[in-house]
């Protein structure tokens, strides 16, 4: 696959944007502070200098306007990559996302396509409090018509972002804030990773643990600890929630007989519950223990580090859940 280097998650995303903008003049980038500032986390650094202000547009703080405009531009033939600075701000622009972008193709009888990519940041752990710490991907997965991408490594970040930009549908691309500084091997050449294909991060035989985004790393930490105690954990990262690779999860549960789903989103009506329901439906007979969910309790994310730690999932809580299902066998 040519040259492979260790780079950060931010650099991987930046490289994907650079390469896609070079390849396809219809790709434009817009959002608050994506130009001169290079994005508040640095993802769009250097794009303005390289591609100019017609293709890299610093917008006013008008999310309903400019995210809707990206949808309109996509309908009219561009491939916009638009940034919503924090997913928590979706409230000011959701109509353009879930009623417009997500439904236009269906309502219009399949006659148009909306190749827009909405990039946004998610996640707790930074004491950023109730309006800057949520993940909320379950809300977007709940709505028909949006592809939901949740990378966990620099390699996946680059490949999935390139796939997203080339895909002809509306996508929400979630970047966990705690992942930006994470390093990993990434090929220099552009490459794609198909949506809907899970990655088995670690093979195991006792318990299946499904996790996405930053929680993949907490799950791996837990799995390594549990290995020392003789418990063999299989860690699966679905990488996209929509489309969802349910075959990979079912195959694994048929082997292990136990499932723990780790999900940083609020517990109530969330991603973890949905995965649990699929497994309960499709391989109930294979289960040796009740399915466990390690999620964020459905309370606003508190500011104080003590309170935030209390509610967010982490390796320690995953270990506890895994031990419970193993004991129940």
């Amino acid at each position: 696959m040519g040259e492979v280097r260790e780079i950060t998650f931010v650099e991987a995303l930046n490289e994907a944007l650079m390469q896609e903008m070079e390849r396809d003049p219809n790709v434009i980038v817009m959002g608050e502070d994506v130009g001169v500032y290079g994005g508040i986390f640095g993802v769009t650094k250097g794009l303005l200098q390289k591609f100019g202000p017609d293709r890299v547009i610093d917008t006013p703080i008008s999310e309903a306007g400019f995210i809707g405009a990206a949808v309109g531009a996509a309908a009219a033939g561009l491939r916009p990559v638009v940034e919503l600075m924090f997913v928590d701000f979706f409230g000011v622009c959701m109509d353009q996302i879930y009623n417009q972008a997500a439904k236009m193709r269906y309502m219009f009888g399949g006659k148009i396509k909306i190749p827009v990519t909405i990039r946004t940041t998610i996640g707790g752990g930074l004491s950023a409090a109730a309006q800057h710490s949520q993940v909320l991907y379950s809300i977007f997965a709940h709505v028909p018509g949006l592809k939901v991408v949740v990378p966990s490594t620099p390699y996946d970040a680059k490949g999935l972002l390139i796939t997203a930009i080339r895909d002809d549908n509306p996508k929400i691309f979630f970047e966990h804030k705690l992942l930006y500084g994470v390093r990993g091997p990434v090929p220099k050449e552009p490459y794609t990773i198909p949506f809907g294909v899970a990655d088995v991060k670690m093979e195991g035989s006792d318990v299946t643990v499904v996790a996405v985004a930053y929680m993949v790393h907490e799950a791996l930490k837990a799995a390594n600890e549990l290995k020392k105690e003789g418990i063999s954990v299989e860690v699966i990262d679905p990488r996209t929630l929509v489309p969802f690779d349910k075959e990979a999860v079912i195959k694994s549960v048929k082997k292990t007989g136990r499932l723990v789903v780790v999900d940083e989103d609020y517990d109530r009506c969330g991603f973890a519950s949905w995965v649990a329901a699929i497994v309960a439906d499709e391989c109930f007979g294979y289960l040796d223990a009740p399915i466990k969910r390690v999620t964020t309790p459905t309370v606003p994310i508190p500011f104080s580090p003590v309170l935030e730690k209390e509610i967010l999932p982490n390796a320690e809580k995953i270990i506890k859940a895994v031990k419970e299902v193993v004991r129940k066998a």
Binding site: E32, D33, V36, Y37, P53, I57, D58, P60
Partner: peptide
């Protein structure tokens, strides 16, 4: 507004 100027746009910033 973070990096966006309220009154003095530049060549690179609308």
């Amino acid at each position: 507004a973070i990096s966006l100027r309220s009154l003095t746009p530049s060549k690179l910033q609308p």
